[in-house]
């Protein structure tokens, strides 16, 4: 299953300092403080919709002693949190219709 940035043009605005990032969601009016991993996930999803497994390969773990399975799990947790914050959403994939961004 692929994830994507919430589907609206120019909904999210980013600014990063050092290893953290603030994100402004112009749809909700909320501002969020994200750590390095979460902000890297958002930036990857901004480029193209991506699955959790692929993100785990693209976004390096912050803790080098973490196993790949643990890292994948952490990515999945972060995706769920970003989804709860209305920053990302699941791509709607049905038999009849795939939005262009999710193909």
């Amino acid at each position: 299953m692929k994830w994507q940035i919430i589907s609206s043009d120019q909904a999210l605005y980013f600014h990063s300092w050092d290893n953290e990032c603030v994100v402004y969601n112009s749809l909700s009016g909320d501002t969020h403080l994200l750590n390095l991993t979460a902000s890297q996930i958002l930036l990857k999803l901004q480029q193209s919709p991506t699955e959790a497994i692929t993100l785990a390969k693209l976004v390096p773990p912050t803790d080098q002693s973490e196993s790949h399975a643990e890292h994948e799990l952490q990515i999945e947790h972060l995706l769920a949190e970003l989804n709860a914050l209305n920053l990302i959403e699941k791509c709607q994939s049905t038999i009849n219709y795939n939005p262009p961004s999710c193909r």
């Binding site: 600014h15 990063s16 300092w17 050092d18 953290e20 990032c21 603030v22 009016g29 501002t31 403080l33």
Partner: peptide, 18 residues
């Protein structure tokens, strides 16, 4: 103080940020 954390705290102290 990290700039990101300062940002959030200033926003909390702003009258018209939202």
């Amino acid at each position: 103080l990290s700039r990101s954390r300062a940002f959030i705290r200033i926003a909390d102290n702003a009258f018209n940020y939202s």
